[in-house]
Amino acid sequence: MSRRISPVIPGFGLTLGYTLVYLSLLVLIPLGAMFVHAAQLSWDQIWNIVSAPRVVAALKLSFSTALCAAVLNGVIGTLLAWVLVRYTFPGRRLIDAMIDLPFALPTAVAGIALTALYAPAGLVGQFATALGFKIAYTPLGITLALTFVTLPFVVRTIQPVLADIPREVEEAAACLGAKPFQIFRHVLVPALLPAWLTGFALAFARGVGEYGSVIFIAGNMPMKTEILPLLIMVKLDQYDYHGATTIGVLMLVVSFILLLLINLLQRRIERP
């Protein structure tokens, strides 16, 4: 290994060694064990597990609701970040501090609170009932729960970038005759896009794996409102370790491919 050790600062071997041992024991070896377990299955067995209609339905549901929630957050998060950075108004500091609530609040608490809120007789749900549709116990409810738990990601990644864009840039564009939408499209979007994508990817990855906040509001009906993490749980309860492991590996592989694609997209944008 070629390395440049700062000649006077001690602790390189100790800290790197400790970091590697700790990570290996707690994260890498256990995760590897899951792949080893799945590798013991034949391709036929694996295909039978992942092509089961119930698994396919859960896969579609998990990834589509996580995607919708990430997109929704992309809009709401940008709005919140914009308002918090650019304007001073009553309650700004309160909102800024409370944005992180979904990270601080245990997901189970978020889950039961949102269920109570969006259930057919709930505070918000009753309006949906009056209009003839349901929020809780449908994919819409799952999307809302995921939007709640991943709300801080986009806001917190965009905020510092937005604060660094000098207002003069927009004013210069306005002086040169750009309309507000043109300023948005040609000045702000290119500057914000990399950070936006990071927030989007974080929200999406978290949304796919999220469990606690979703299981209460989902209703958990097989084929309709059953998410992938719950399906792993169901398989485990039935002592179906092969099934649970295969779905786990599938979930990780699909997530990593999507995160890799987002990462590549980001690099292309940053270095045109």
Partner: peptide, 27 residues
């Protein structure tokens, strides 16, 4: 310090964030 593979190490440190908690229990 500077050493080869540093960015991989940083990615590995962040890895648990993109793993579903249910998988964390499963392993």
């Amino acid at each position: 310090y500077e050493f080869r593979g540093k960015s991989i190490l940083v990615t590995l440190i962040d890895l648990p964030f993109s793993v579903s908690p249910v998988i964390a229990g499963l392993i």
